[in-house]
Every structure is written in C-alpha cells, then in structure tokens.
Design a protein around this nucleic acid. Sequence first.
DNA 1: GAAATCTGTATCTTTTATAGGACAGATAGA
DNA 2: TCTATCTGTCCTATAAAAGATACAGATTTC
Lengths: 294, 294
Amino acid sequence: MTRSVATAEPMKAHRLYLLLREQILSGEVPDSAKLPSEPQLAQEHRVSRVTVRRALDKLASDGMIERRPGSGTFVSGGQTRMPVVADLANALTHLVEMGRKTGVRLIAFSYVNATPALAEELKLEPGERLQRSVRVRLIDGQPFSYLVTHVPERIGISYSEADLASTPLLELLERTGLVADKAQQIIGATLASPDVAAALDVEIGAALLSMTRVVYEASGRGIEHLQALYRPDRYSFHMELARTGDRGARRWTAADSRSLTEANENNNKKNAREKRPPLKRRTTHETGRDPSET
Amino acid sequence: MTRSVATAEPMKAHRLYLLLREQILSGEVPDSAKLPSEPQLAQEHRVSRVTVRRALDKLASDGMIERRPGSGTFVSGGQTRMPVVADLANALTHLVEMGRKTGVRLIAFSYVNATPALAEELKLEPGERLQRSVRVRLIDGQPFSYLVTHVPERIGISYSEADLASTPLLELLERTGLVADKAQQIIGATLASPDVAAALDVEIGAALLSMTRVVYEASGRGIEHLQALYRPDRYSFHMELARTGDRGARRWTAADSRSLTEANENNNKKNAREKRPPLKRRTTHETGRDPSET
DNA sequence: GAAATCTGTATCTTTTATAGGACAGATAGA
DNA sequence: TCTATCTGTCCTATAAAAGATACAGATTTC
C-alpha cells in the first residue's frame, strides 16, 4: 500500500500514442511505411482528428514519425528494437563481460513483517521479520528493472546496505555459505504504478514484464523472494527451443535465456521529460537513499 | 494498423482501480485485510476522495472488497490467484488431459504480403504471401490468449479454415510432413489495444503478456510466426530452476513450463459489462467469422 | 490543371472527470 | 457516553480533454 496515482494528460490521445508507439517499435508497422491518414486513424480509433493529432504530435516530438504535408505521415527509419545481448541461464553476470556498464540504485531498505502471502511463498512463519530492499538496475545509465527483494532477517544481516548497492543479491547470499538449491519463477505482466514508473522512467500506465522468483535452499526453506519489473523495451526473455523426441512423444526442450534489448537512440531526443512529479518515495517507514551507481 | 482507441472512463479512478485490483489479486494486500481509509488513499495517491471512491466502487461491484460504514473497507476472502495447471514444455496439449475444456475462436483468416519485419524473422523474401489467422483460445469458456499467426502460403493451403478452429496449428503443420526443428521465443509485455481487449474481455489499457515465437524447419526456413497475447491473470509462464555446477561455474538449469491460472470466480459477478462497444472487426480485407468453440 | 487527399492551424463548443466541501449515519475505542 | 474515524450521499465549481468545423497550403493523381 504505497503508491500514488497522478498525472493529468490527454488520455485518449495518450493511449493512442502508446499504441502507435508500440506498433512502430515492435516493427508491426514497417520502417518508412506510411501511416494511415489522420482522418483514417480518427475513424478507426473512434476519436476525433484533434485527438489523433495530439498523439501524432507526441510521436513526432519523439522523432519516431515524420509528417509530410500533403502526402502523409511516415515512420522514421531505424525504429525497430534489436536484441543485443543474449545472456544464458541466469542473471546479468555476463553483461559486464560483454562490456556493458551496469549499475544499481538502492531505493529503499528496511525490515518488515512477512505478509501471509510472502510467508507462504517463502515457506516461513507469517509475521517473521524480513529484510526488504528495493533496487533499480541500470544498463549504460538507463534503468531497465525494478527489484523488490525480501530475505529472512537472519540472513539479511550478514551483509550491509552498501553491499546491496554493489553486489548481486544471490552472490551475497551464497557468500554467507547459503546454498541455493532450487528456484521457481513466474513471468507475467503488469501496469506501471507511479513509483516504479518514475524509477524506470516510463509512462505511468505502461506495460511491464514482471517476474516473481523464489529461491530455496536445499532444506526447502526460502532464502530469497524477488519481485522484478522490467521495461519490456529494454529487457525481455528469450528462449531457444529444440524439437526433440520422436513423433507421438515430441517435445520442445528449452535452453532458457534472457536478453537485453538495445534502447532506441531516437527516444533520447525529447526524453528530458517535463513531467516528473514531486513523487514522495518511502511512504511507509523505509529508510531510503540513493547511493551512486556502481 | 487495425485498432481503435475508445472508451470514456474516469481515468484516474480507473487507474487506481487497476492498481488496487492488482495488489489484491497478487496477494500484496492480504485477504480480509483492511485497506487504508478513503481519505488516506486519496492523500497517498494524490487524488480527491471522489476519485478514490469511484475506484473502490468498481472494486466493490467486482466483489473484491467489502465496505463497512464506520469501520473501513476490507478485502473479500478468496482473492489470491492460484496456479492450477502446470503444463510442461510446450503448448496446451496437457490441458485437455487434465479435464479442462479448451476452445478456439477463429476471428480472422486471410492471405497477406509479408511485411519486411515478418519476412526477416521468418527468413523469407519480403512480400512473400503469408496466411494470416487470428484466433482466441478459451479455457472453460473464458478467453485467455489472442493468437496471430503467419504461415507461408504454400504451407497454409494444406489445411482448411475449419482445421484452424479445431486443431493446434503446430499439429496441422506437422501433419503435412513438415518437421519443426527449432524455435525461438521472446516474452515481453504490452498494452491491450481495443480489439484484443474486446477479444480477451479485459479493459483497454490492461497489461498483457506477449510472446513471439518463430518456428523453423531443419532447412532453417521459418514455417510459423506466432504473436501471442495472454491475459496475465489467466496465463503465465512458470519455470522451475535447479542450481547446478560447482562454485565458480554454477548455473541455473531450467525446466521450462507454463501454467494457467485459475480465474477468480468473484469476478464473474458484475462482469456482464455495460460497455462492449460496437467494435468493428476485420477492418482490412479479412474474411472473418466466429466458429463455435471446439 | 483540376480534383482528391494530405497535413497544418485556428476557433469554438460540449462534455465530463476531478476537486473540494458539508453533513448524516455507523462503528469502535477510551 | 463522548470522541475520533469510518463510509454513504449530495452538492457545486473548475479545469481541461475531446469533439466539431472551417480553411489554408502541399502533394499526388489522372
């Protein structure tokens, strides 16, 4: 229960903007292709031309489209997102090796009581003390993931706040002698709430990839609960599958992998955004701070 | 370029509604817990109480919360979503075995020219003819996925429109003697555009899980391009991971799996929604139809 | 060169989401 | 019982998003 709804923007226009933006970025609308005319868009989307116009204005100021009076509106070149790093199996360990600068911002750090849901997932007693931390990961200075982790207090005290801002949590855990044995991941999707929207530098209603991961040690007790939110334009899950087995019992075997997606250079144009509301962080009793990136 | 933006709803209210809904459904706010008071919510989220009220009204009409004058607003019991079926590796083949009734609705069927993006992904010539089909999968009568598939024409003609409405595409392909060799999947997130929103029976701005899959035959040529959109409350990707290897070279090995999520029964209450706009399907030149479920 | 179809621009109106109060009735705790 | 704190209701005011319309200038097409 910490979040806030704000922003007063032309809504229909903004929606249309997000939609078109997506279609362009995803390559659904080819580069240099001509968009439907404003009246057409207006009709198709059941809004007035003024609204369409507002959406296109935004796209134009993002440098994503080019408007040619008399002829039409066109998609600017080089818009399609391209996956860049394919990072096998786990984490971002390889990113560094690949020469990308990653960073972490510690946003919040506190100790809380386990909610029933958390306790159940971690297989702990309800109400048990947990260390809660909120971090944002950056790649080349750009935020791409928002991580909320919960770790049993007895484990959490073995490392410092500063450690969190510089070292992957799993590594910290294993340093303390704990052995991660198995884990469970669930991947879904959510809307960006205002605080994560601010942290990830996305619009408030934007779609985010979400991953919930619970790591267990051999004894079966949970040692880490991670709730991660990713910017889908900067991070996505990739997997290569191979067809194995004979007919009748054919299967796909997965070689799971994740990958970062190259941020679109064009989007940095007008992205010195106007609206960065005076959002109040740490609404509850979190002792927050913003350590420098690593 | 077929989509429409519509809907005139209280926006901030709606956003707040979605947010709270999520927090409740995800168990972030425990069952039977007391929500912050209306004035509190108003302050935290920087909106007026009227707006908070509208959001809560919606939640209440969904049966998700219970309001007790004088004391507060409480989360109704049995809200947390529970995963039900864990379907290993590929597809939904196991669902049937598990006794769930699945169905397919064929929404559109046509032949189109490959866009550059499609051609590249499928490793075909740009402009090549493709069979395009749009389907919606149902589980127990409830839509959970929206599938847009593209298949090279020469392959597509080997089965009928009716086949599509009754048989999984991959099976159809392999029936024709084609051998799927490898595939690539990318999982991300998107916003629901009006047409898919209608098809999946979700709100228009809702977050959707998206998966893009390209299947190749041994020769390396693409034989299927699938763009799938999932309702995250009904479908999500699950994976169990095991920690393998010694320290220094430890890895997570994945046993990929997906799972369906039990739909929340409470939501069927007022879900005879008012607003189901007279959306026009098949905006382009698609010959559509709505075959009965299988 | 005329017609059709674009985008650019400007003005005016309608609609409505949101804010901000005031107040009654219910409930819980001191 | 008194007080503080809820939700339930009703009202008005304001800001602004969205719609409607008309027209100028560019471009393409025939």
